[in-house]
């Protein structure tokens, strides 16, 4: 399991990636993260919803109510064009970050 401190700067990127194709909702996103990372990263509920709130404030995502299923109305999120641009930016930033950090990583100790 990855510590949440290490990955903090990329929570937004992870969520935006999962919204690239289709709109989704809280539980589905957290489940997808868990499955894609083979349970190496489980995003806490509060982290997920803080990210939703932050991304929505910055207009990178929009929320809307889905159809009611078993009496429950889910809040769905969809990515905006601004969000896609931001996602691109974050990906480029990651390449640089990775390159920089790797210069200091020694595996043959």
């Amino acid at each position: 399991m990855i510590s949440s401190d290490v990955i903090r700067g990329y929570n937004d990127t992870i969520i935006l990636f999962l919204l690239l194709k289709d709109p989704s909702y809280g539980y589905e996103i957290s489940k997808n993260i868990r499955e894609l990372t083979k349970e190496q990263y489980i995003m806490k509920e509060t982290t997920l919803y803080s990210a939703f709130s932050r991304l929505e404030k910055n207009q990178y995502i929009e929320s809307f109510y889905g159809d009611e299923t078993n009496g429950k109305r889910r809040t769905y999120y969809r990515i905006t064009p601004l969000g896609r641009a931001y996602y691109q930016e974050k990906c480029e930033e990651w390449f640089v970050t990775k390159e920089v950090v790797e210069k200091f990583i020694e595996t043959s100790l």
Binding site: I42, T46, T47
Partner: peptide, 8 residues
């Protein structure tokens, strides 16, 4: 797995 409410 809920996390920290203060963060939110």
């Amino acid at each position: 797995n809920f996390g920290n409410i203060d963060e939110l």
